[in-house]
């Protein structure tokens, strides 16, 4: 009986504390005020584990088809480049203003600060999943609601090649006649 009483007390205390934090307004939700290191780590690890688990069984098609690069290039320029940048661009209004900052996909994985990608196949699975489903409260939309899988794989194929492209190559691949 004592244990049950203690448990109930602890639950009431937890609910009370959560409600106080929620409704007092002490949590700063401004995008220009970064999380504490602990909260950032907590969210990052949760995000990484969630994507890794959800994407682990996705079958990756052949991404070396030039037609995929042409299809994905136009979509990348229109849908992604304002946040994820393009060759020879280091920042944009969106990349600076969003929090967490969207990764610069025009540089190689090794140059990304703060997170690893795992092996290439898993990185492609992850990219497909993220493009298709988006990420909650991050500014990343779920493009799968309006784009079919083939178009999303085309974007994955283009993103795979993006760090190796010069600005001139990028311009040619992303142009639409």
């Amino acid at each position: 009986m004592k244990i049950i009483k203690l448990l109930l007390l602890l639950i009431a205390l937890a609910v009370g504390t959560s409600a106080t934090v929620m409704y007092s307004g002490i949590v700063d939700v401004a995008a220009d005020e970064p999380h504490s290191d602990f909260v950032y780590w907590l969210l990052e690890e949760t995000r990484k584990s969630s994507i890794q688990k959800a994407a682990q069984h996705i079958q990756v098609p052949n991404l070396d088809d030039p037609e995929l690069l042409l299809m994905g290039g136009a979509d990348y320029e229109f849908m992604c480049s304002s946040c994820h940048l393009k060759p020879a661009q280091s920042e944009s209004d969106m990349s600076v203003g969003l929090y967490p900052a969207p990764p610069n996909l025009a540089v190689s994985n090794d140059e990304h600060k703060g997170h690893e990608h795992g092996d290439d196949i898993q990185a492609e699975r992850n990219n497909f999943w993220v493009i298709k489903h988006g990420i909650k409260a991050s500014g990343m939309p779920a493009w799968g609601k309006t784009h079919d899988d083939q178009r999303i794989w085309a974007m994955v194929a283009f993103i795979k090649r993006l760090p190796t492209l010069s600005p001139e190559q990028y311009q040619i691949l992303t142009a639409v006649e």
Binding site: F78, I172, A175, V176, E177
Partner: peptide
């Protein structure tokens, strides 16, 4: 909604490929 993802819309923003630099 149908016109929002028409690839022709992309053309207005991007323009032609500059193949002279290839």
């Amino acid at each position: 909604a149908a016109t929002a993802h028409d690839p022709k819309m992309h053309a207005k923003k991007v323009g032609k490929a500059d193949c002279s630099k290839m």
